[in-house]
Amino acid sequence: MKVAVCIKRVPDMDLRFAIGSDGKALDPAGLKFDIADFDGYAVEAGLRLVEQAGAGEVVVVSVGPAAVQETLRKALGMGATRAIQLEAAAIPFDGMAVAAALAAELKDGGFDLVLFGRMATDSANQTVGPMTAHLMGVPCVTAISKLDVADGRGTAERQLEGAAETVTFPLPAVVTIDEGLGRPRLPSLKGIMAAKKKPLDVRPAQLGTASLTVDHIALPPDRPPGRIIGEGADAVPELIRLLQTEAKVL
């Protein structure tokens, strides 16, 4: 079982964000970075697939500047076999531009499965996976929360609004991973040591042209600060009054 996992380096969402001086990106001061949430789930899914198969490799790939090597090393520490950095000065916001670079690298790699996160925590586009699949010419199933692989076919489950779909598809395929397949393992100390010696290749990213660009970014309008209206069941009449007269939702 040969699995590739595409992972993105994204800012840690717990921190307070400020807008950078160009108005198009976050102020880098004080930011911390990590592997995108769903990409961590995708790495875990890849590791489990290869463990179940008993043989194979998990190759992690990331498009971006030298800093993405830290993200790749983390995945190597979790147990991935080797890593590829597709070097680009910056990560384009355009999903097709990123997909072009990933597809060029992965198309002839002989992978049974190429895994993605459902969406990147920062861009939240949810487009790179299916676009890469199209460029690779392989089937694609998105946002799956369960996966079984047997006899060259996959069976997956996807959560819809208020329902779930079961989907079958032949390998090789691209799959994008939602929650549900198993929490990402933490890199062990031994894993982190071993990761330092694992191969990490660097190649230029063959990015596609970007037709989706960021005009500017902004913080969302502030909500009025929270207000505690009372304690216990005694506060219920006041709440009902406010819902009727102020919020007008009742």
Binding site: R223, P224, G226, R227, I228, I229, G230, E231, G232, A233, A235, V236, L239, L242, L243, A247
Partner: peptide, 8 residues
């Protein structure tokens, strides 16, 4: 965040 909070 809550517009109307009840502690209880």
């Amino acid at each position: 965040l809550a517009d109307y909070g009840i502690v209880g």
